[in-house]
Simulated assay, not measured.
Amino acid sequence: MLKTLLDQAARLGVQVCTDPRPRTDRVYGFYDHDRRMIVLCGIAARDVCLACAVLAHELTHAIKGHAGRQDEHVEGLCDSRAVNVISLDAYTTAARYYPDNMWAIASELGLPQRLICAYQQHLDSTRRLVDRPRLEAV
């Protein structure tokens, strides 16, 4: 998954680099539109799932041409793309151990709570589509 995301960044002409220093504002990455650069902040090499989630989120900013700080609605849309890196099996296992505890699930998966929230919304919308009544052909 990481290689696929890095390849996509390269095709878009977006450079990806890392800054090993953790940020105090819980920002794991950002996209600099003027420099066409994504910076992943304070993510350890072992945190591949987190790196993929942040990269997918920031690539959405790059694809959409977002410059500067975005509002919560736009951030939510970018999160909705990043949820694709979460394994359903890993999420289900964590949710079984920590029912109704988003913080614990996020901690178990090594992901930000807002991404777990976006994933839960994704699962809910998928269930609504599956549970929707089927129309009979006439």
Rank of each mutant, 00 (worst) to 15 (best):
N84I: 05
D32H: 11
R46P: 03
L50V: 07
N101S: 06
L55A: 09
L55W: 00
Y97C: 14
A104E: 13
G42E: 07
H33P: 01
A44F: 10
Q70A: 14
I63D: 12
T93L: 10
K64I: 02
L50F: 09
R23L: 11
G29R: 02
Y91K: 01
Y31V: 05
E58T: 09
Y97G: 12
H66E: 13
A82S: 11
K64M: 12
D19E: 14
E108N: 11
L109I: 07
V54T: 15
P20M: 08
I86G: 01
L50Y: 08
A45H: 13
V16R: 00
I43R: 01
V48H: 06
D25N: 13
R26N: 15
A82V: 03
L40F: 08
C49L: 11
L77D: 05
D19G: 07
G29E: 04
A53M: 01
D79A: 07
R21F: 06
V39E: 02
A90C: 10
G110C: 06
Q15N: 14
F30Y: 12
R81C: 11
D47C: 07
T24G: 15
E58W: 00
R36P: 02
P20S: 14
V39F: 03
D71Q: 10
G76K: 05
V48T: 14
V27G: 12
G42L: 04
V39S: 10
E108V: 05
M37E: 12
A62W: 00
P22Q: 15
G110A: 06
G76F: 00
A104I: 04
G68Y: 06
N101Q: 12
V74W: 01
Q15A: 14
E58N: 08
C78H: 04
N101H: 11
Q70S: 14
L88G: 10
H66P: 04
A95G: 04
D71L: 00
D34C: 12
L40I: 14
T93W: 03
T24P: 04
R26T: 13
A82H: 07
A67G: 05
G42D: 01
Q15E: 15
E75Q: 13
I86A: 04
S107P: 02
V39H: 01
Y98G: 01
Y91H: 10
P22W: 05
L88R: 14
W103R: 13
V48L: 08
P99M: 08
V39T: 15
C49T: 15
D32C: 13
